[in-house]
Simulated assay, not measured.
Amino acid sequence: MTDHASPETDDLTALPDSARRVALLLRERGHAGRIVMLPETGKTSAEAAAGLGCSVAQIAKSILFRRREDDAPVLVVASGANRVDEKKVAAQVGEIGRADAKFVREKTGYAIGGVCPIGHATEPVTLIDADLLELDSLWAAAGHPHAVFNLTAQELIALTGAPVVDVALRETA
């Protein structure tokens, strides 16, 4: 961690309610649950990476889609450096569409920019970007646009129980 972000905290009372909920959930699942509060928003991968002093690729961004056939939430946890190929996601879960802010809040319990990979109001169909496995350390949103937590790709897989698939949009020449 760099001096850009505020220190990790064990004082849960200092956290916003949604981040405190994530910290407790992480601890229940055997993760240290230490939340870092960024002084600036972490709504985008670039903002979060700048605040943490890490590469954009290390940001495990949560992107929510709406599955068309049953309105189920589909969560893709992708490297911050990648654009998600919606056709690849659809091949895994069925036809998908974009999720608006209201859908994201209703299905996850989190605001856009703070969607954690776990602890959703409605359990999503989840996919993990295979490119995340190439990285030693990841940062994911912790329920609030300023809150993040550190984990490994293996911890992400264990916490979510999600399959690892290729979801990245690959530019072809």
Rank of each mutant, 00 (worst) to 15 (best):
E69G: 04
H4Y: 09
A19Y: 00
A49L: 01
A49Y: 00
A49E: 00
E28T: 12
R27M: 02
L38M: 02
D166C: 10
E28Q: 15
A72T: 13
R66I: 06
T172V: 15
T44I: 01
T2R: 12
D166A: 15
L64N: 03
L127N: 13
L64M: 13
A142Y: 02
C116L: 09
I96A: 09
V56M: 01
D10E: 14
S79W: 05
E171V: 15
D11A: 15
S55L: 08
G143V: 08
V93W: 11
R68I: 15
T122F: 11
A14E: 11
A173V: 10
D11P: 09
E28S: 14
T126N: 13
D11S: 10
V93Y: 10
A72I: 13
P117I: 10
R34H: 00
L75A: 12
P73G: 12
E134G: 13
L15A: 13
R20Y: 06
H4E: 05
H146A: 05
Y110M: 06
A14F: 05
I35A: 04
G161P: 08
K88E: 13
A81S: 11
Y110N: 04
A48D: 00
A46I: 05
L12V: 14
H144L: 04
A49W: 00
L24D: 09
T172A: 15
T13R: 07
D71C: 02
L26P: 05
T122W: 10
T9R: 07
G80E: 02
R83W: 06
G80V: 03
Q154F: 11
E40D: 05
A140G: 06
G80K: 03
L25G: 09
P124I: 13
A141K: 04
T44M: 00
V89T: 09
T160F: 15
S79A: 11
T152L: 12
L38W: 00
P16H: 03
N150C: 12
I112Q: 06
P145M: 02
G119Y: 04
K107N: 09
V76N: 09
A14V: 07
H146R: 04
D166F: 09
D85T: 03
K61W: 02
A19T: 03
I96V: 14
A162V: 12
E171Y: 13
T2A: 10
D71E: 14
H146C: 05
P7E: 13
E106G: 02
A90I: 11
Y110D: 07
V104E: 04
G114Y: 02
E134V: 11
K107A: 13
D85L: 05
P124Q: 13
L132F: 05
T122H: 15
A91F: 11
H144I: 07
V89M: 11
G80Y: 00
V89Q: 10
H4F: 11
A147Q: 02
V74G: 10
H146Q: 07
D131H: 14
G109H: 08
V164Q: 14
